[in-house]
Design a protein around this nucleic acid. Structure first.
Length: 276
DNA sequence: CGTAATGTTGCTGA
DNA sequence: GTCAGCAACATTAC
């Protein structure tokens, strides 16, 4: 479930808890979670200090003192937690970083889809496939309206899969895409080259505002998301369409419907969001 | 039991 | 080259 606001919430929690901590020992009960060489992963990180935790799109970037960067993607249900050293791992604990201050940083993943990759700091944009062609962050500073307008015009896809494609812009997943399209009054199957100038501007502004608002609410918890403190998000109370199929549209009162677009469940208002 | 679920990658064929 | 569709990854919940 983690989209950009959830990953950013995790990043902030990790920063508060483990920035500056040194790794003493690493256990990997689920080796498939490590995409890069497992031995190298362990030997390089033991003794290293977590200097900083960055984020790009839905990727977490742990910056270590020895010029190594641990790239971590939570995919569907990856979670970090910090426990006293030696606490029993959870059923789905995949990686345990024992810290020099007698705590364990655990990575848990019920779906086992999340992946980690260790790279030389600075090479992550070449080394990590998802980062090599990632689009701009959905922020006022980075998501330029001219850029967005130009790639929309060049594409012949439906707007929903276009927005989910991290190469176009980073950070949106199924939930916020449905929300932003409802706010912008755009049908999810609208072809991107059919959007007019004012629709593009509206879409951009809504994307930026929605991601910021969801981050301010510490993300959305619909199935399992919680931050490193085990706390759920607050934004699920603010959702207008996602998870509200059969309920009335908050704008016009019409019953919201759910369809499949590019194999993804998609909820929208058939009155407010009309196909061209 | 069948189906769907939040993400990403890679393949196939049009 | 572009795009849609599908499978795969592995598990849980309804």
């Amino acid at each position: 479930m983690p989209e950009l606001p959830e990953v950013e919430t995790v990043r902030r929690g990790l920063t508060a808890l483990v920035q500056g901590a040194q790794v003493n020992k690493i256990q990997v009960p689920y080796p498939k979670a490590i995409v890069s060489d497992l031995q190298e992963f362990k030997t390089a990180l033991v003794g290293a200090v977590i200097e900083k935790i960055d984020r790009r799109g839905k990727y977490l970037l742990f910056r270590f003192s020895n010029q190594k960067t641990l790239v971590s993607h939570l995919r569907m249900e990856g979670q970090y937690s910090v426990e006293p050293e030696g606490d029993t791992p959870h059923k789905h604990t995949e990686v345990i970083f024992t810290l020099a201050d007698q705590r364990d940083l655990m990575y848990n993943d019920t779906r086992r889809f999340g992946r980690m990759q260790l790279v030389e700091t600075g090479t992550e944009y070449q080394q990590v496939s998802g980062l090599s062609k990632i689009g701009p962050e959905p922020t006022e500073a980075d998501l330029d309206v001219t850029y967005l307008s130009s790639i929309l015009a060049k594409s012949h896809r439906k707007i929903k899969p276009f927005l989910l494609d991290q190469a176009n812009l980073a950070g949106l997943g199924n939930i916020y895409t449905d929300e932003v399209l409802w706010q912008s009054q755009i049908h999810p199957e609208t072809l991107t080259d059919q959007l007019n100038e004012s629709e593009v501007e509206r879409l951009r502004d809504n994307i930026i505002a929605e991601i910021k608002r969801a981050t301010d609410h510490h993300g959305t918890t619909v199935h399992s998301f919680s931050n490193v403190f085990g706390e759920v998000g607050q934004f699920q109370n603010e959702l207008d369409v996602y998870g509200r199929v059969g309920e009335p549209c908050r704008r016009c009162g019409e019953t919201l419907v759910k369809i499949k677009v590019a194999q993804r469940g998609t909820t929208y208002c058939p009155v407010c969001q009309v196909k061209k």
